[in-house]
Simulated assay, not measured.
Amino acid sequence: MDQLWTAAPLVALDLEGTGGQDRDREKILEIAVVPLAAGRPEIGGVWETTVNPGRSIAPRPWISPDLTGTILLTAPPLEDVTDDITTRVHKQILIGHNIGVDWRLLQRHLPDLEAVALIDTARLYKHLRPAAERWSLSRLITQYGLSDQVRALAPKRTPHRALWDAVAAALLLPALVQDLPGGAATTLAELERIAGLRQQPAAGQTTLEF
């Protein structure tokens, strides 16, 4: 993987779920996929869907109020969109903010999915700013002056909606890469070394080492 990172076919991924407190019962509520071309979001290839969790969901601070019970009740169940997810995610180089959280949830429900690599924009930011105490996606989007671009590419979406977060991660990545010593000349191998999560199979499933 010594090619420039912009030459790689990357895919930004974000999931919204019921929350880690549900453990093995955590449900997917929404998913968005944003492919990148030449290091920029390729909006023509964007895909998003809400997902019917099959049960009522209590309000939580991390669940967008836009994801109402009515919207989720009329959304397709996960099995109806599994083929769409597989087509867009399986054996791709995936990026996201705290991507390990999204990947664990996705693999919990679709364990046959594989990723070529997982690149975490939160991990990349912490590499660049090791003293930073806060690195939420919405905070970094404001810090890097990307708010207008996110709104333009994800209209009518807000933080904690899958499309907003996926588009935000796709825009944040090149901004962060510019702060690396190699800048635009950064290779995919270097990016994966700095911000990648190692996948290690255990007990028949993929786990992530941070």
Rank of each mutant, 00 (worst) to 15 (best):
W5G: 05
A7V: 04
P9N: 10
L15M: 11
L15S: 02
G17I: 01
T18S: 13
D22H: 13
R25F: 10
I28P: 00
I28L: 10
W47F: 03
E48V: 03
T50L: 06
A58W: 10
T68I: 07
T68K: 07
T70D: 15
E79V: 09
E79M: 12
E79C: 15
V81F: 02
T82R: 14
K91V: 07
Q92Y: 07
I99M: 08
G100W: 08
L105K: 02
L110Y: 07
L110E: 12
P111L: 13
E114V: 07
A115K: 04
A122S: 11
Y125E: 05
Y125S: 05
K126I: 06
P130T: 07
A132T: 08
R134W: 13
L140W: 03
L140C: 07
L140D: 00
L140P: 01
Y144C: 04
R151E: 08
A152S: 13
P155V: 09
P155Q: 07
K156D: 15
H160Y: 15
R161K: 08
L163A: 11
D165C: 05
A166W: 03
A168Y: 01
A170N: 08
L172P: 00
A175H: 10
V177G: 04
Q178L: 15
D179A: 14
G183K: 09
A184E: 12
T186R: 06
T186M: 11
A189Y: 05
E190T: 11
E192R: 09
R193A: 13
I194V: 15
R198T: 13
A203Q: 08
Q205L: 09
L208S: 02
